[in-house]
Design a protein around this nucleic acid. Structure first.
Length: 628
DNA sequence: GAGTTTGAAACT
DNA sequence: CAGTTTCAAACTC
């Protein structure tokens, strides 16, 4: 999207480029379920802050450089409309201009920023805003049908606006009408002039008219939040909604539609679209299908949002509820009540009595900022244990493992399982030592081994490694290990798609080294197994730590007395809770927990500033066993 | 599928 | 900037 800001609206790009870029972009916000219409949220500018006019202009037809105002203008990713046979021209528009997209093409994502909602897509990250499908039938698309991959294409039904006003979703999205059911449509190539005028008029009226309505918080991730496990709220509506009767729980509400919580930007009345809202939760719970859609995102959110110093903690910006709090406060559930909901929703198994909750978690555990009396904030038990850098490190390690596994597999060909295991052990050990150096060397090895086969991935890999320093993963770099590691879905694809030029490191190598596609699946499976095993181990450790902490709190609550020990503040040190059972308790996956005293394990996980957490987390040996 | 409701966009 | 009208999507029957 950056491009768009510079006036390089997708239309100008060549198809491949545009497509590629879009794919790399973060999933568009919404997800899903509302997925349906996010057309309006297309991001012409790419960002909230930028001055819109420039970017908008760029994206619009009138753009100077558009030597060819062809249809492609609006639908960037599908540049060559004309060449493609149009699936079916709209009845009213027989000559419908070229449609930019070819059918097979995946939907385009123009709005990277948000992702609120997570549609139940298999690959949530790819969410099409207005895909265009030549589908004759508008909404019934089976879009989400099978794999849940949304492909929806929104088709308007405008009758009086000629599709030249923002009322029209297509127009608002910056795309030509294609296969819509509109009447007297002017939002097409044939009426480019009129369209252009309309665009200008619209911009004149509101320079931000074509900018995304939903934007992620300028302050970044901290503003993001996970909502009771159901929806992922990552952004807020720029203008906010003004709903009066829908309670912001219907798609009339733009916030709801985008699957984001109402924010302080909203001026809605009787809003129920706030964090912890019973109505909202009921709504989600009642819609199981949609729930599934969010699961993945929620999971990701849990990782990115719950980890670190904030957890649910103190949202910088309250996600609203101002309506209720200010005017209906008395009638709305009190914080405690909501707390209970959260806990349930999060499947937090805690033995802490609700009565003690109010005094324990949230506010107390660090992150005092923003924790107001009226705002309940849930704080993950792992909040103090897992630090952002830990996560990054973990991601890096997993990627390294993957790379190593690929290399190993390639070297050994279809070697037997045993060697694999051994190698894995070696890897684990070496990794535990930790050190970037190690990782680099590992990667370097792999890279060098593959150099002959491929380009020279070494550089890229090396660069990626640097992300472990805690720098922003999303920097200009192509794809950091962290990103790769987190791209579960994408990885799946990568694993199975040998053609990806940019595939996960190691894959290409592996595939290229193996004779043919034959052993690939096996090799990938093994590779995946290794990585997943590592990840599992890490998770087991986290579970253990969480339980320890939980136990601690539980005990704390019970005794509820003195507690003030230092322990809580840092959440780790000093607890001496009944750990006996913990140690023996078997993992649900059958793995036995380590017999190491919790405190010891915990310390391993804890990463205090300056300490490289990585070694601690990811380097579990076989079954989560830590070196004693 | 027709009619109603709703709230954003457009207009005054 | 507030109030009103227009519009099309969402929703209901």
């Amino acid at each position: 999207m950056e491009q768009s800001e510079e006036g390089d609206f997708p239309p100008k790009k060549t198809q491949p480029e545009a497509a590629a870029q879009q794919q790399q972009q973060p999933p568009p916000a919404a997800t899903d379920f509302p997925a349906k219409k996010l057309a309006r949220q297309l991001d012409f500018t790419g960002y909230t802050g930028a001055s819109s006019s420039a970017s908008l202009t760029a994206s619009l037809p009138e753009h100077p450089n558009q030597s060819q105002p062809s249809a492609a203008v609006l639908k960037p990713s599908h540049p060559q409309p004309q060449q493609l046979p149009q699936p079916q021209p709209h009845a009213f528009k027989p000559s419908q201009p070229p449609k930019p997209q070819s059918q097979p093409q995946p939907p385009i994502m123009l709005m990277p920023m948000q992702q609120p909602p997570g549609p139940p897509a298999a690959h949530p990250s790819m969410r099409p805003l207005k895909p265009e499908s030549p589908r004759p039938r508008p909404r019934s698309n089976n879009s989400e049908a099978k794999d849940g991959t949304p492909k929806k294409q929104k088709q308007c039904n405008c009758k009086h606006s000629r599709c030249l006003k923002l009322y029209c979703e297509c127009f608002a999205s910056g795309v030509y009408c294609d296969g819509c059911n509109c009447v007297n449509c002017h939002n097409n190539v044939e009426n480019e002039a009129a369209r252009r005028e309309a665009v200008e008029a619209t911009l004149e009226r509101n320079p931000n008219a074509f900018r995304p309505k939903i934007a992620s918080s300028p302050h970044g991730a901290r503003d993001t939040r996970e909502e009771t496990g159901e929806a992922l709220i990552l952004a807020k509506h720029n203008k906010g909604c003004h709903c009066k009767k829908s309670g912001c729980l219907k798609k009339y509400c733009e916030c709801f539609q985008a699957n984001i919580l109402c924010s302080d930007n909203c001026k809605c009345l009787d809003c129920k679209n706030y964090e912890g809202s019973e109505e909202r939760q009921a709504l989600f719970h009642g819609d199981h299908a949609n729930n599934m859609a969010y699961i993945q995102q929620a999971a990701n959110a849990a990782i990115t949002g719950a980890i670190g110093s904030s957890g649910y903690g103190s949202p910088p910006v309250s996600k609203k509820r101002k309506g209720q709090e200010l005017f209906f406060g008395a009638t709305v559930k009190d914080p405690l009540h909501r707390l209970g909901q959260f806990q349930q929703a999060n499947h937090m198994k805690t033995s802490i009595p609700s009565s003690s909750l109010s005094s324990i978690p949230g506010a107390r555990l660090g992150n005092p900022a923003g924790v107001g009396p009226s705002k309940f904030t849930y704080r993950s038990l792992l909040a103090d244990i897992i630090q952002p850098q830990d996560l990054k490190e973990l991601c890096s390690v997993l990627v390294v493992y993957s790379a190593e596994a690929a290399k190993m597999l390639a070297d050994e060909g279809k070697a037997t399982e045993k060697p694999v295991q051994e190698h894995r052990q070696t890897l684990v050990t070496s990794t535990q030592d930790q050190s970037q150096g190690n990782k680099d060397s590992s990667i370097a090895e792999k890279a060098s081994a593959n150099d002959k086969l491929n380009g020279n991935p070494a550089e890229k890999i090396t660069a990626e490694e640097s992300s472990s320093d805690g720098a922003d993963i999303s920097k200009a770099r192509p794809m950091s290990p962290g990103t790769l590691a987190l791209m579960c879905d994408e990885q799946d694809t990568m694993f199975t798609t040998a053609s990806s030029p940019n595939g996960l490191m190691g894959h290409d190598n592996l595939s290229s080294q193996l004779p043919d596609g034959q052993g690939l699946s096996e090799a990938y499976a093994e590779q995946e197994r290794i990585v997943l095993t590592k990840f599992r181990d890490c998770l087991n450790r986290l579970i253990t730590l969480g339980e320890i902490k939980e136990t601690k709190f539980s005990s704390f609550a019970r005794t509820e007395s003195s507690n003030q020990r230092d322990t809580i503040s840092n959440g780790i040190t000093g607890f001496r809770v009944e750990t006996g059972n913990l140690q023996q308790e078997p993992f649900s996956n059958g793995l036995a927990k380590s017999a190491i005293p919790p405190s010891v394990r915990a310390s391993q996980m804890v990463s205090s500033a300056g300490i490289d957490p990585f070694p601690k987390i990811p380097s579990p040996t076989e079954n989560g066993d830590v070196k004693t």
